Each structure stands twice: as C-alpha cells, then as structure tokens.
Computed example of a mutant assay.
Amino acid sequence: MAKYTLLIYGDSAQWEALTAEQRREHDAAHEEFRRAAGDRVLGGQELEPSPNATTLRGSATLDGPFLETKEALGGFYLLEADDLDEVLALAKLLPEVRAGHSGVEIRPVVDHG
C-alpha cells in the first residue's frame, strides 16, 4: 500500500463566510469522506487560517505565509491506499472538489524505507 496526502486549498475568506447551515453541510461532507475512507485515513486536520502561520526563511522568521496567494492550505488528510484510483474516488467526496474557490491536491508520499 502507498501513502498519499490530500492537500485542501481554498479561499479562506470564503470558508470564513460560510453560514452555520453551510458549515454543517461542509462538515457533514468531510464526515462522509472519513466514513467512506475508514482506516485508510492515517491522519488529517483542518488548519488555522494562513494569517496565523509563521514562516522560516533562511535566518528570518516571518508572520503569516511566505507567499501571498488567493488560495491557502486549509487542511490535509494522510491516506493509505492501493493506488491513485482509489484515492481519487475517495477525494471526490470532499466538498472542496466541488466548490468554485477551492481544490484538492493529491501527492504521493515518498517511501525512503
């Protein structure tokens, strides 16, 4: 089995603007994803908004993200799956795939061992 990260990007202003009902629907979609993925989910978390980030670059410590972008990393999952097709099928359950301001980047994890 291989490991994959699902990096969830989107416009944090739009995430913060969700109504209570939209937030419940969003959270329910993530719960559906976690239920479908079962024990293939090895970890994952929602991240604080990007202005709360601290970036290290050389000898400098910077408040906020290093790059100014419209889309910021909002969360991630770490999955173990047989292949990319299995991950794609599960990732399609995430609401960020269907939202106009966000997306999901899938990257295989390098196995050094």
Rank of each mutant, 00 (worst) to 15 (best):
E86V: 08
V97R: 06
T19L: 04
L67V: 15
P51Q: 09
L93M: 08
E31N: 00
L78D: 09
F76E: 04
T69I: 02
R34N: 05
A89L: 04
E21W: 07
A60Y: 07
E31A: 09
L84S: 10
V97Q: 15
T61D: 03
E32Y: 02
E48W: 14
L93H: 06
G58D: 01
K92R: 13
G74L: 09
E96R: 07
A53H: 14
G43W: 06
F66I: 06
F76D: 06
A53D: 09
H26V: 12
E25K: 14
P95E: 12
G58E: 06
T19M: 07
E25W: 04
L18S: 06
D39M: 04
A99Q: 12
D83Q: 05
D82K: 08
G75Q: 13
E68P: 00
A60H: 12
V87A: 03
A99E: 14
P95Q: 06
A53Y: 05
R98Q: 02
H26A: 05
V97E: 05
P49K: 05
E25L: 15
E71R: 09
V87I: 02
G58P: 01
Q45E: 05
D39N: 07
F66P: 02
H101K: 05
D85I: 08
L18D: 10
L78F: 08
G64P: 06
A72K: 09
R40Q: 02
L42M: 01
L94W: 00
D27K: 10
L18Q: 10
E86S: 14
E21H: 08
E71P: 04
D27S: 14
L47P: 03
T69V: 01
E46Y: 14
L79F: 11
F33V: 06
L94S: 00
R34K: 12
P65A: 04
A99M: 15
Y77T: 02
R98A: 04
G74M: 10
G58R: 03
P95N: 11
R40E: 00
D39Q: 10
N52T: 15
R23T: 06
E80Y: 08
R35C: 08
F76Q: 12
A36S: 11
T54E: 13
F76M: 11
G74F: 07
L47E: 08
A53W: 08
L18P: 02
G100M: 03
D27Q: 14
G64R: 08
E32L: 13
L73I: 09
V87F: 04
D82E: 15
R35H: 08
E96S: 10
P49M: 01
A28C: 00
E71Q: 13
F66E: 11
G58C: 07
S50F: 04
G38H: 00
P65V: 00
F33P: 01
P49A: 00
L84P: 13
A91I: 04
L56F: 14
K70P: 06
R40I: 00
H26Q: 14
A36C: 01
R40A: 01
A29Y: 14
E80A: 12
G44C: 05
R23M: 13
